[in-house]
Design a protein around this nucleic acid. Structure first.
Length: 507
RNA sequence: GGAGCCAUAGCCAAGUGGUAAGGCAGUGGUCUGCAAAACCACCAUUCCCCAGUUCAAAUCUGGGUGGCUCCUCCA
């Protein structure tokens, strides 16, 4: 396996990653609270950590990947009470939606997907332990964590307790010993899901589930903990306090990873600004893989500006959306899939499909995997891996275009190797998994629909043009090309006949 | 008020001490009946500004300017 350096949010520097057990990584990522359709921010985070998980595998590590679902939480209960739907049913429904959406972005299912509702016993045991160690106290049916008993509090976020109080803006529960203390267990209120506990009926507070679930599935101490930057405070800070308060100062996550946030034209995404984009809208409009490629073209820690423009009708109503940066990513995908298809076709035509690319190849073709490895081992630098993919694809196209001067066997084997390795790196990034012909056909169908192109009319014009060309009537042929261009269609004359695609105009 | 992040070509984006990856767009070329696609070449003497450290700075230090985030639910 390849040694990895990563930026640890806790130490605030890039460090050598040394898993507890060499070659084996235990990784926990904060998953969603499913109370509404997943939006692009959820996808960005899920893709970031899925890519890290895939990268670690590519680098030779065995990864145990745990991503939870917080299915008991205030927002779910509130939404359920508003709509009349049972909160647990609502959470289950949106959790299923979430997983379906993430699958469209190439996010692999976690190895373990624990839920709060199935870990109540573990949560209660952890709270009891915190009471026993003196970190938590019971008030009526509630149990709170007492921050004063955990002097290391604030190490991850850089928060200091006296400053926290200065910034206190929420109403303080007078039964708390300190305003900063947070709930581990909340006494049941009418209309809320509740479970029996030593403190009466109630439910877990937010934060405690992650401490309980990491312990249940990864043990006292584990390697990587990930989540969105916004979770650093208070969520991750509280997780640390709970877990270390219970299991000791050396327990819990050994390295912290936080992904940057998505902005829209420099603005934070928020419902009030009307710039929250649902995952299904993205996947339907440009395809899920375009978002995936967009994400891995940026470093996961960087804030990313997401280019989004609402399409409005004459009355100003939003009728659709343009995602310029995703359309660019989709076009880039077309390049890679076209390249893969060219190679696949070439290998198929050469008759020797058994040669997967083993053996001696052109030395330039041997660079892709090592280059990708170096890139991903350096803090999961996917943009640099993308650069390696571009160079490999250009090499493949060059070999396909210019057969002269290269030994036939070496050429074919080199192309087979390139296709194999492009896909191997693609697996690490979560791209290029589709059949190229299928992807290209689906992409064109999407564009045809989006642009309102009449495919049958296009085919008719192409037939007319073929007739004109056969008659060497090039003036007529060019006139038809002009008509098609006006329709937004580009033609591609090949030995197999004329193929067409949708122009990538800015329209 | 406290904590932190970011600023690299027209645009997107890597690079955290050793002389500016990659992509898009653009220009020229190869190929083509003409195109498209693909390929090739060109495209930042310079990294927001000022000062400093160093043989050497986009990278480190200090001071500015501009943008953003967290401290409250938030991926």
């Amino acid at each position: 396996m390849t040694p990895v350096r990563l930026y640890d949010s806790f130490r605030r520097e890039k460090v050598l990653f040394e898993p507890l057990e060499p070659g084996v990584v235990g990784m926990y990522v904060c998953g969603p609270t499913p109370y509404a359709p997943a939006h692009i921010g959820h996808a960005y985070s899920a893709i970031a950590f899925d890519t890290i998980r895939r990268s670690l595998r590519f680098l030779g590590y065995q990864v145990r990947y745990v991503r939870n679902i917080t299915d008991v939480e205030d927002k779910i209960i509130k939404r359920g009470n508003e709509t009349g739907e049972d909160p647990m049913a609502l959470a289950a429904r949106f959790a299923a939606d979430y997983n379906r959406d993430m699958a469209r972005f190439g996010v692999l299912p976690p190895d373990i997907e624990p839920k709060v509702s199935t870990h109540i016993a573990e949560i209660i045991a952890l709270i009891e332990r915190l009471i026993a160690t003196g970190c938590a106290y019971q008030v009526d049916g509630d149990v709170n964590f007492e921050i004063a008993k955990f002097p290391a509090y604030g190490a991850l976020s850089g928060m200091k307790l006296d400053e926290l109080r200065a910034g206190e803006r929420v109403e303080v529960d007078p039964r708390k010993r300190s305003p900063d203390d947070f709930a581990l267990w909340k006494a049941a209120k009418p209309g809320e899901p509740a479970w029996g506990s030593p403190w009466g009926k109630g439910r877990p507070g937010w934060h405690i589930e992650c401490s309980a679930m990491t312990h249940a599935h990864l043990g006292d101490t584990f390697d990587l903990h990930g989540g969105g930057k916004d979770l650093i405070f208070p969520h991750h800070e509280n997780e640390i306090a709970q877990s270390r308060g219970a299991y000791g100062p050396r327990s819990f996550a050994r390295y912290w990873l936080h992904n940057g946030f998505l902005n829209f034209k420099g603005e934070k995404m928020s419902k009030s600004l009307g710039n929250v984009v649902d995952c299904s809208q993205i996947a339907d409009t440009v395809g899920g893989e375009a978002l995936r490629l967009f994400c891995v073209s940026h470093h996961f820690r960087s804030p990313v500006d997401f280019d989004f423009e609402a399409i409005r009708d004459g009355d100003g109503h939003v009728t659709g959306a343009r995602f310029h940066s995703l359309e660019a990513a989709d076009k880039k995908l077309e390049y890679f899939y076209t390249t893969l298809k060219r190679i696949d076709d070439f290998i198929a035509q050469s008759g020797n499909t058994g040669d997967a690319g083993d053996g001696k190849v052109l030395p330039e073709a041997d660079k892709l995997i090592p280059d990708a490895r170096v890139a991903l081992a350096d803090d999961f630098n996917t943009p640099v891996a993308m650069a390696a993919l571009h160079e490999a694809a250009a090499l493949a196209n060059r070999l396909l275009d210019e057969p002269k001067g290269i030994d036939k066997q070496v050429r074919r084997r080199t192309l087979a190797r390139l296709a194999r390795d492009l896909r191997a790196v693609g697996v690490a990034l979560g791209v290029f998994a589709a059949d190229p012909a299928v992807y290209l056909a689906e992409r064109r169908a999407r564009l045809v629909q989006r642009r309102g192109i009449d495919a049958a009319a296009v085919e008719r014009l192409i037939a007319d043009r073929a007739a004109a060309r056969a008659a060497k009537d090039f003036a007529r042929s060019d006139a038809i090309r002009g008509e098609l261009t006006a329709l937004g269609v580009a033609l591609h004359d090949t030995p197999r006949g004329t193929e067409w695609s949708v122009l990538d105009t800015a329209s």
